[in-house]
């Protein structure tokens, strides 16, 4: 028998093992590598006129890659066992099922947010070093530092919606589709607010709130799922 802390740790380790064996662990390298390198190449060859625009471009690339990884890994962490009926092995074990899911999601969310953070830091450093703002360059739509902080909120939103969908549908594939649709809605809403000049901190905070509620729902419902 294990306590909640031990269950969290055991299942976090189990998730790392699964990521390693499935090779999905490599996905976490994409935002820190492809984000800064891709945006640096764009900075140099597209001759981005301002440092702010270069940073926004780089953060969007890094955040977008992070979002895809968040969707994929969350859908699988919550929904794969339910799809395969592998939960019939894990559920009768003497452990708290909320902690079971919490341990696995902690690795996926922590890994994705960490990967984004490293990638964003790379973009920030490279963008600052490679691009100089040209005189007369158009001012970016919003400060890059705001986007830097807003993108983790988007990742949390997507992860939360995907986790909730995985518990409801009991299928990783359907959860992934739900997460993608949620991402499209979020992008559409963000575009609307930008063009209406109404984009404020409320939007990302709201997204993060929805994501936390989604994860909370998943953690609450998961232990109640019947075989």
């Amino acid at each position: 028998m294990s306590g909640v802390g031990a269950t969290l740790a055991i299942n976090a380790r189990w998730e790392v093992t699964r990521l390693r064996r499935s090779q999905r662990l490599w996905l976490l390298l994409i935002p820190p590598v492809a984000g800064p390198v891709g945006s640096a190449i764009a900075d140099l060859y597209l001759k981005i006129p301002s440092q702010g625009t270069a940073l926004i471009l780089g953060l969007l690339v890094t955040g977008g890659l992070g979002a895809l990884i968040m969707l994929d890994l969350t859908a699988l962490a919550v929904g794969e066992d339910l799809t395969l009926r592998a939960h019939l092995t894990a559920f009768p074990l003497p452990q708290d099922r909320t902690a079971l899911l919490g341990g696995r999601v902690a690795v996926v969310w922590g890994g994705t947010l960490g990967a984004y953070a490293i990638g964003a830091a790379g973009v920030w450093v490279l963008g600052g070093a490679l691009v100089t703002t040209q005189p007369g360059a158009v001012t970016p739509l919003f400060p890059p530092s705001h986007l830097l902080l807003a993108l983790p909120a988007l990742l949390i939103f997507l992860g939360g919606v995907t986790a909730a969908a995985a518990v409801i549908t009991r299928a990783a594939a359907q959860a992934l589709v739900a997460g993608i649709l949620a991402g499209v809605l979020a992008a559409g809403a963000a575009s609307y607010f930008v063009f209406e000049h109404q984009l404020s901190a409320v939007f990302p905070v709201g997204l993060a709130g929805i994501g936390i509620v989604g994860l909370g729902f998943a953690l609450y419902r998961y232990p109640q799922l019947e075989a």
Binding site: M1, L84, R85, L88, P92, L93, D96, A227
Partner: peptide, 16 residues
């Protein structure tokens, strides 16, 4: 759950 199943070995149905 954790207390009740602490010393129980289970194989129910055909787990994936």
């Amino acid at each position: 759950r954790a207390d009740a199943l602490a010393r129980v070995g289970v194989l129910v149905e055909t787990p994936g």
